[in-house]
Nucleic acid binder design. Structure first.
Lengths: 245, 245
DNA sequence: CGATATCTTGAGGAATCTCAATACTAGTGG
DNA sequence: CCACTAGTATTGAGATTCCTCAAGATATCG
């Protein structure tokens, strides 16, 4: 038997009649962007805001997919495991990203908070019922799925055919690009995740990640000023490396 | 400038009033399964059947996504390329599979016929218009996208964290499973693609694929009777290897 | 039946991994 | 405020898997 999921997730109470969507900072970047104010009110009825501490499990692979989520703050990692503990991180999620897009009966992967995380939680059944009424939202989900599929194929190319240096360069540029999408600067790049997480995302070991970053630093393509931040010094060269010199 | 795509694809003429759907053998396994007879008639108006010879390009990465397809016969490979020619095959498609699910303006990957291929071709604009009327079909596409996303994550785990032997074992079992889905036997497994294609799908070299198959044969887990076919002798052991012993 | 592509096998090399030691960082309590 | 601890990151040396290059075997097709 499995413990009920999220048993220790902090659910944030809400005063009656007050919609969390009203103050949602990432509404315009999320699934919700396509909804009218009235539709948003309907949606607000079924959602609840939740928070997770760093390293806290959001759900496990195989858990019944009772909820879908929107990331409203922090960084989430998705991963799959092999029997002997080898791990592949299949994605990092940032504010505005949708979590649980695999409308299956159970989750095909685990999800864990990397930083302090806040999520907007949708009961899956109720969301599916609402989708019947809001075809716009369904269309939006299909668009999101399309984009994720394209990103997954990029990641396969990275995992199957790129060298360690090409993987790291690609990774840094992807993070920079996503930061820009969220309205941030392209540099310095925030690295909220550990070396172990980066390694498991890129199909490398911790040591190779560390060594490769050191090499890029020695070659003055990047600088590692503060912990958890990378400054891009020579974007062009980094891009050239990422695409296979 | 790029040549017009599919310039040499053979478009199969159709007599007036005769729907190709009527004789479509894979209708029940495809997107079309959710449509009523009347809806299918509407869909039939916009489709055309096309054929491609082995090695023929169906479309290239970056081409404007004018058409979506349903595979009705044969095997298709999807791939992405790096600047220097390194290639990652991101998927093989078999009868019943949908091609082009990334409803973007341009294709995110190339598609090429592995064997003689027959496709049912939908003009993307017209299909999108029909989707407005057939929400069932849109829901079905979302379901297909969900499944592909889950498969993509499995493939990331394979590419990032599995050994050559584990990759080959996984690959054989995936093909067997998909053959069963299409109503075929689990063994022998058809391998319509070349060693080079298998290598580019698994992130290996041709030589490693060949050597690994030889080892599995020596250990009597499989046998390579005819070219292009693999018989599974010890499914349990193969599964154990695929999941990481 | 010969020509060509594909596949298999072999030998050596290279990229990355493993194991181990050291350095750094952040949080804790004196 | 500083020492201590635990976790995380870096660096080093050797091992290993897989790749590269090369030759030979097999299959395919005109």
């Amino acid at each position: 038997m499995r413990l009920p999921q999220n048993s220790d997730a902090q659910s944030i109470p809400r005063r009656k009649g007050e919609s969390p969507c009203a103050t949602c900072g990432i509404r315009e970047m999320s699934v919700c962007a396509v909804l009218s104010d009235e539709e948003l009110d309907r949606l607000a009825e079924i959602i609840s805001a939740t928070r997770f501490a760093p390293r806290q499990l959001i759900f496990q692979e195989g858990d019944p997919a009772a909820y879908l989520f929107n990331v409203t703050g922090g960084t989430v990692k998705l991963y799959k495991l092999l029997a002997d503990g080898r791990r592949q991180i299949t994605g990092f999620l940032f504010p505005g990203d949708f979590l649980g897009l695999a409308l299956n009966e159970s989750y095909a992967y685990g999800a864990e908070a990397v930083t302090e995380v806040s999520l907007c939680r949708f009961p899956r059944r109720k969301l599916e019922a609402l989708l019947e009424e809001f075809p716009k939202m369904e269309k939006r989900l299909l668009g999101i799925a399309s984009n994720e599929l394209a990103a997954a194929q990029d990641q396969m190319l990275l995992l199957g055919r790129k060298s360690a240096q090409e993987k790291i360069a690609s990774f840094l540029l992807i993070l920079a690009h996503r930061a820009v999408e969220r309205g941030g600067p392209p540099s310095p790049i925030d690295l909220p995740m550990s070396r172990a997480d980066i390694a498991d995302y890129l199909g490398l070991t911790i040591e190779t990640v560390s060594r490769t970053l050191t090499t890029l630093k020695k070659n003055e393509l990047i600088s590692l000023a503060q912990a958890g931040q990378v400054e891009v010094l020579q974007r062009r060269k980094l891009e050239a490396i990422a695409q296979g010199s």
